[in-house]
């Protein structure tokens, strides 16, 4: 009797410890998020002044959307939003098409130099994009593309990592599937669309989510290439907004909230796919 009881008590003590740990980590990860959202509804002076007390967590005095209006008027939020949306859309959609076709071709077609090409892509995975940006900047300036939106997405569409990811995924699919479809009279594109694409959804989700997060946060390249206001993506816009004195913390937090919240909402809705997408990438890498 007593031993069962003490075992139970021990188990309970263990789970209490686990909960305390879980909750303190949750506080560490969530507090900045809460501060951001709460602060975006306050007056600029109160954001810093309230940090000394629990008032940091209460949006009083409530300023409504005034900070958001500032972020849009002074910070040009919507111009940057448009740039970021175009850039991310092109990188994600263009990347999925180009990389998956390339991976599919490498996995299924037989042609001269195929193995060499595959080896080249694998080798290129370790070349960090950061090492290429300087010559890329020069190339862009030679063809007069600096200060354009297309210079921000075109170089980032093809990614050896995802080509390889798609390649290994397609390689793992049995070739009989396509043969059967061919026998039924489907052309290569119909086969791809009807048979291969539905099977490859997880790979697409994985690559799509990762490229989206990457492109949405991209900062180094815009710092180098985007000069005028009309082509500034959100991260750069936010930096410029902070650089405009006086520093208005509430406005900045409103800008950050508006920039992060759409992603956050999509994340909460598609949580499972997000988490799976990221861990898939890890398992394959």
């Amino acid at each position: 009797m007593t031993s069962i009881k003490s075992a139970k008590a021990q188990a309970r003590r263990k789970s209490v410890t686990a909960y305390v740990l879980l909750a303190s980590f949750a506080a560490f990860f969530l507090t900045p998020v809460i501060i951001m959202v709460v602060g975006s509804f306050k007056s600029d002076e109160r954001v810093l002044a309230d940090q000394k007390s629990l008032e940091a967590f209460s949006p009083t005095p409530f300023e409504g959307l005034e900070n958001y209006q500032q972020a849009s008027e002074t910070g040009n939020f919507f111009t940057s939003l448009q740039v970021s949306l175009i850039v991310s859309f092109m990188i994600v959609i263009g990347g999925l098409v180009v990389n998956s076709f390339c991976g599919y071709a490498l996995a299924r077609l037989r042609f001269r130099g195929q193995r060499l090409l595959l080896g080249l892509f694998v080798a290129l995975i370790i070349v960090p994009f950061e090492a290429l940006l300087v010559p890329l900047l020069l190339m862009m300036s030679e063809i007069g593309w600096t200060d354009t939106i297309r210079a921000q997405f075109l170089p980032f569409i093809a990614q050896p990592l995802y080509i390889f990811l798609f390649y290994s995924f397609f390689k793992g699919l049995p070739g009989e599937l396509e043969e059967a479809a061919m026998i039924d009279g489907a052309g290569p594109f119909t086969t791809f669309r009807k048979i291969i694409f539905p099977l490859a959804r997880p790979a697409y989700a994985s690559a799509g989510i990762l490229t989206f997060l990457y492109s949405w946060g991209q900062f180094l390249w815009p710092v180098m290439i985007a000069r005028s206001e009309e082509v500034r993506p959100l991260p750069l816009g936010l930096t410029f907004f902070r650089g405009t004195p006086p520093v208005q913390w509430a406005d900045l937090l409103a800008y950050a909230t508006a920039m992060v919240l759409p992603v956050l909402i999509v994340f909460v809705i598609f949580q499972r796919q997000f988490v799976q997408g990221v861990s898939n990438a890890g398992l394959k890498g």
């Binding site: 980590f25 949750a26 990860f29 969530l30 507090t31 900045p32 998020v33 501060i35 951001m36 602060g39 954001v47 810093l48 940090q51 997060l213 949405w216 946060g217 900062f219 959100l234 991260p235 750069l236 936010l238 930096t239 902070r242 913390w249 900045l252 937090l253 800008y255 950050a256 920039m259 992060v260 992603v263 956050l264 994340f267 909460v268 949580q271 997000f274 988490v275 990221v278």
Partner: peptide, 21 residues
Amino acid sequence: TTYFIPITFSLSAASIIWSVL
């Protein structure tokens, strides 16, 4: 979910929030 949320933040946004904190 909670621990994963910061992944959805661009580093620039994270830096601004932490400048306040």
